[in-house]
Lab assay of single mutants.
Amino acid sequence: MKHYEVEILDAKTREKLCFLDKVEPHATIAEIKNLFTKTHPQWYPARQSLRLDPKGKSLKDEDVLQKLPVGTTATLYFRDLGAQISWVTVFLTEYAGPLFIYLLFYFRVPFIYGHKYDFTSSRHTVVHLACICHSFHYIKRLLETLFVHRFSHGTMPLRNIFKNCTYYWGFAAWMAYYINHPLYTPPTYGAQQVKLALAIFVICQLGNFSIHMALRDLRPAGSKTRKIPYPTKNPFTWLFLLVSCPNYTYEVGSWIGFAIMTQCLPVALFSLVGFTQMTIWAKGKHRSYLKEFRDYPPLRMPIIPFLL
């Protein structure tokens, strides 16, 4: 059985960083990364991007050496992705923050609204209902991160945790300040508006959870398998008939419901920014589905049925 020789060059300087002799033909890129780490321990596998061309796409960890368009002496180019952190850690951090930050404003801890309001309670029912909904949303997200989601990528750049936390924590503080303010004004149409908004919120939260469970069942634990998601017997998953990412559709719907319930401008802005970002993600995933699966359902749109 022939063996391969693998040289790894710096993608920027073309400097030879490592030479691997007698590499098995069936070795994966993940195994080559581990061998590279032995000579350069500062670059652990998650930091490494190996590619066939200095400006090309990163090879997948599961790619097999003998199936790549290389000879028995293969040249790979290395790029440092920077310090990495696990997706689970990032999600837990960015979701735990809003949960606790919101509660600080809800309980009106000292130095927020003035001494005479310390630890007082709002007289408006919608304020307490909003706290329950907000807390439920982020507790749900935390539990899904721990027990439901299966991540195709193990890590992301460390800098992302600061960007994500600034976004989630900042908006949580902004909306919580106004919703729990002693001078907060309840919704214009009173109980009817709150009940309608609560119904929207609850339905969308159930829908979002149902989609996450359906997506989880598509991917076996520990794998990166991708399949076309289809509706199940659960009615909340029937939205798969019309959109590629109904989890985002339901998520946006939840925040629209919360915005109607609280009639709070920061919540509306958070919903708008979230919708914009999720639309970008949904379009990317939709394109990926179309590219990977020739039999992908043609009627589906990325996030909004028939429109977007």
Rank of each mutant, 00 (worst) to 15 (best):
K2Y: 07
H3W: 12
H3I: 14
H3D: 12
Y4L: 07
V6P: 05
E7A: 10
E7L: 02
I8H: 01
I8K: 08
L9W: 08
L9K: 02
D10F: 05
A11V: 09
A11E: 01
A11P: 10
K12D: 14
R14G: 09
R14P: 06
E15C: 06
E15I: 01
L17P: 07
L17R: 11
C18V: 01
C18A: 08
C18Y: 08
F19A: 07
F19Q: 07
F19V: 05
L20C: 07
L20I: 11
V23G: 09
P25I: 13
T28K: 05
I29L: 07
I29D: 04
A30G: 11
A30P: 11
E31R: 06
N34T: 00
F36H: 07
F36D: 08
T37P: 05
K38R: 12
H40I: 07
H40F: 07
Q42W: 10
Q42R: 12
Q42K: 03
W43G: 11
W43A: 13
P45R: 08
Q48N: 07
L50K: 05
R51W: 04
R51C: 12
L52W: 10
G56C: 08
L59K: 12
L59T: 15
D61Y: 05
D63G: 12
Q66F: 11
K67L: 13
L68D: 06
L68F: 15
V70M: 06
V70F: 04
V70K: 15
G71Y: 03
G71P: 03
A74E: 03
T75W: 01
Y77H: 09
A83H: 15
Q84R: 10
W87D: 03
V88M: 08
V90L: 13
V90I: 08
L92M: 07
L92W: 15
T93M: 14
T93V: 12
E94V: 04
E94T: 02
E94L: 02
Y95A: 05
Y95N: 09
Y95C: 09
Y95H: 03
Y95V: 02
G97C: 13
G97R: 02
P98W: 00
L99R: 02
L99N: 00
L99G: 04
F100T: 00
Y102I: 02
Y102D: 05
Y102G: 04
Y102E: 06
L103K: 03
L103D: 00
L103F: 14
L104T: 15
L104Y: 02
L104A: 05
F107A: 15
F107Y: 00
F107L: 11
R108P: 09
V109A: 11
F111R: 03
Y113T: 05
Y113E: 00
G114P: 15
G114D: 10
H115I: 01
H115V: 02
K116C: 15
Y117N: 04
Y117S: 13
T120I: 13
T120L: 11
T120W: 14
S121A: 13
S121H: 04
S121V: 01
S122T: 06
H124N: 00
T125F: 13
V126G: 04
V126F: 14
V127L: 06
H128D: 02
L129P: 05
A130T: 07
C131Y: 05
C131D: 02
C133H: 04
C133A: 04
F136R: 00
H137K: 09
H137G: 10
Y138C: 08
K140N: 02
L142R: 01
L143R: 09
L143Q: 11
E144C: 01
T145S: 11
T145Y: 08
L146F: 11
L146T: 02
H149K: 00
F151Y: 09
S152P: 06
H153D: 08
G154V: 05
P157N: 12
P157D: 15
P157S: 10
N160T: 00
I161A: 14
K163W: 04
C165H: 15
C165L: 12
C165N: 15
Y167E: 15
W169V: 11
F171P: 00
F171L: 07
A172E: 02
A172P: 09
A173I: 07
W174M: 04
W174S: 12
M175I: 07
Y177V: 04
Y178F: 06
I179N: 02
N180D: 03
N180V: 12
P186L: 09
P187K: 09
P187M: 02
T188S: 12
T188V: 15
Y189H: 09
G190E: 11
A191M: 14
Q192D: 05
V194M: 08
L196A: 07
L196R: 07
A197D: 01
A199G: 12
I200S: 03
F201H: 13
I203S: 09
Q205A: 15
N208H: 07
N208E: 15
H212M: 02
H212Q: 04
A214S: 07
A214I: 15
R216E: 15
D217H: 14
L218M: 03
P220I: 14
P220F: 00
G222E: 10
S223D: 01
K227Q: 14
P229T: 06
Y230P: 14
K233E: 07
N234Y: 12
F236D: 09
F236R: 06
F236K: 04
F236N: 14
F236M: 00
W238C: 11
L239N: 03
L241Q: 11
L241F: 15
L241M: 06
L242N: 08
V243P: 05
V243M: 06
S244I: 03
C245S: 08
C245Y: 04
C245H: 15
P246R: 08
Y248R: 15
Y250F: 12
Y250S: 08
G253M: 15
G253F: 02
S254N: 01
W255P: 15
I256M: 10
I256C: 05
I256F: 12
I256S: 11
G257W: 14
M261S: 02
M261E: 04
V267F: 04
V267M: 11
V267D: 05
F270S: 07
L272M: 05
L272H: 12
V273G: 11
G274D: 03
T276N: 06
M278N: 03
M278I: 06
W281S: 05
W281R: 03
A282G: 07
A282E: 06
K283N: 07
K283Y: 14
K283M: 13
K285G: 06
H286Q: 06
S288V: 02
S288C: 09
Y289N: 11
Y289L: 04
L290M: 08
L290Q: 07
K291D: 00
F293I: 08
R294S: 09
R294V: 07
P297A: 04
M301T: 12
I303E: 02
I304Q: 05
I304M: 06
L308H: 08
